[in-house]
Structures are given as C-alpha cells and as structure tokens.
Design a protein around this nucleic acid. Sequence first.
DNA 1: TACAATAAGGACCAATTGGTCCAAAATAAG
DNA 2: CTTATTTTGGACCAATTGGTCCTTATTGTA
Lengths: 195, 195
Amino acid sequence: MTTGRPREFDTNQALAAAMHQFWQQGYTATSLQDLLKAMQISKSSFYQTFGSKHALFQRCMEHYRNTLEDSMLAHLQKSPSARQFIDATFRAISDNGQDGDGQFGCLIMNTASEFAQDDPVVAKLVRTGTEKIHTVFLHAIKRAQADGEIPGDKNPEALASYLLSSMGGLRTMAKAGTARKTLEEIVKITLSALD
Amino acid sequence: MTTGRPREFDTNQALAAAMHQFWQQGYTATSLQDLLKAMQISKSSFYQTFGSKHALFQRCMEHYRNTLEDSMLAHLQKSPSARQFIDATFRAISDNGQDGDGQFGCLIMNTASEFAQDDPVVAKLVRTGTEKIHTVFLHAIKRAQADGEIPGDKNPEALASYLLSSMGGLRTMAKAGTARKTLEEIVKITLSALD
DNA sequence: TACAATAAGGACCAATTGGTCCAAAATAAG
DNA sequence: CTTATTTTGGACCAATTGGTCCTTATTGTA
C-alpha cells in the first residue's frame, strides 16, 4: 500500500476559514474565488476535498453548530449558576456587537433568512441547528428553575424558544449596526421576562 | 411639445412586484431574469425606468418601509387602545407565520442580515427603516403608558428597541419554519415584558 | 529506484450574471 | 400626415458563475 502526496493544507483550518466567509457574506454572495482565497487552497484541492460549494456549506453549518453548542455547554458548566450563564450569554452578544464575530449575526439565523424553506437540505440544517441551541437553553432554564433562579411555574420549553428568538433578533440588530447601549437595554428587558 | 409612446405597464405595480421578489429571495439571489418575469416588463423598460438592479432595490426598500409604516400607523389609529395595537401586531406575525407574507420575514431585517455594513447605501436604508418602525412603536408605548396600560416607570425608548428586536427575531423564527404554537408562546412571553 | 497514489496548478467549459445599444413600434401634438 | 418623443423587443457584450479535467509535482512504499 502506498500513501501518495500529503496535502499541503489542514482540512479543519480550511473548513473554519470557509465557515467564516459564509458567516460574513452569506452563501450566495460568497463566490468560489472568495472561498479559495479565504481557505488558501487551489480549486482542484477544493473540489477534491469538499465536492462542491453546497456540500462545503453543509459542513460549515455543522461545524458552526457544533462549535456553538460546545462553547455554550462549556460556559454553562463553568458558570456559577445557570441563570448567570443565560445573562452572560446575552451580555456577550451586546458586548461583541460592533467588533468580533458578533457583528456577523448568527450563521444559523442568517441562513434561515437567506434561504427560506425552498432548499430542503438547508432547511433541515437550520432546524437541527436551532434545536441544538434550544436544547442548551432548555437545560439552563430547567437548572435555573430547580435552583429557584427562575419561577418554576413558567413553561421551560416556551422560555427556551423565547430566548432563541430573542437571541436571533438581538444578533440581527447588532448586525444592523445598533449602538451598544441600545443593545444592552434590549438585553435587560429581554432577561426581565425570566423573573 | 410631444408626448411619445405611452408605457405599457404600471410603475408602482412593477415596483411592488419587484419588492415581493426581493422580499422572498433576497437581493443577491434574485437575478435580473427573476425580476423581469415578476415585473412583467422587458429588459429595456427595466433599465430605462429603474436604472439598475441596485437602484431598484433602494426604491423597493423605501416602498416596503413606507407601506409598513402606513399600515402600522393605520392599525394603531383604529385600534381601541395602544396596548392592544402592540399585542395585535405580534399576534399577526405568529398567525401569518406559515402562510401569507409573514413566511418571508421582514425585508428590512432580511436586508440587514444579507448585507452587513459593507454597502453604505444599503446600511443607511436599513437604519432609516428600523428607525421608522422604532418610532411607531415608541408612539404606541407612550400612549399606552399615558393610558396606564404599560407601567410609566419603564423607559419607552428602550421598550421600543426591545419590540423592534423581538419582532425581527420572531419573523426570522417564522421564516425558519417554527410551529405556530411555538410562535404564540414566544409572543406571549415577549409581551409579558411590558407588564 | 521504480511504482502507486494522491495533491496541486491551471487551462478550459457552458451557463449565467448585470448591463448596453440599436432598430422598430407606437403615440400625441403640430 | 409628418415629426418629435418615448417605449419596446431583442441582439449583443464582457465578466463572472460553479465546475471539470488533464498534466505535473510530490510523496511513501516496495
């Protein structure tokens, strides 16, 4: 058995670069040239490794979803309380509004906005993506309720959906260039619904 | 003075059709062919009347903004109370989530999501668009506070921003295919922040 | 060192992109 | 009925789109 020439780039690194590109510009507005430049690979390597623009996008969505989920779960675990985790999550969004990755919104929400329901593959990626975040919020809410940080008579499923929706709105507001102070006010009111 | 050949289409009608197209598919994903088919005019007429795809898009954004503002103001006026207007506005979104125009989200928010801040012309259209809606909400909130339907100690500006953000999130959720029942739960919690 | 296996560079492709331009058609005023 | 003015259809355009394919380069193994 032989091994052949080793690739000159790191697949995960290229994937991450592509994800950032889609995140910033959206699927349609991102051209192959944009991707190749961001990923720093040749066209041949691109098609050999990822198959097509659409296939790459799917992997990027999954990568984003997993990264986000892992990050949230890590924060939840090391947070002193579940309620504080929720607060910190929303504060981080208003803080990173103008700079950082926050100014690009949420890839999943962006994708939901770009493709409506017309592409079934993408629609499913959006659905599973939102479900993952929903689940993380749900865990946090239930734990917060158990600890008496959120009234126990509130429907945790509904609250999780509410946080998901609010997060999407907030990130879009940030993307639209809303002032940090305004974002902070929105967060404060949003979180007051949990009291 | 002579008048020349009369045009065979209605400008406003064509504009409305174009707006719907952009609304459904976004700017980049909407091709000239798509527009011509939707507007039912020839390429010559298109460029003679609207100049370019980008110029047309600007007019569509303005048209959407004006239409939305007029509609909201009309509803506000004929509503028995300002608070009921706010409630009804959000209920309408969760009602028209799957069908109607609601499934396409909000053109302004969609545009904010599609273009980040890279296109200054579009960025300004987004800003003025959101400001208009913000102002309508602000009027409603102040009136509701004067009528004792919303606590007077709450900051009306912040509340208006909150409603704007929530509306955007809710419409994106609807666009993502969220079940009506879930949308209704989100609305209920969202509005509870006004109590 | 020859060979098998894979990667990379880049020429090439049909289709589509937004956009221009010209000639023909239609109309109202004179 | 001519003429000035405008609209319309469609040919045409360069640039770009996502994607294929062939050649060359580079490696580990035998």
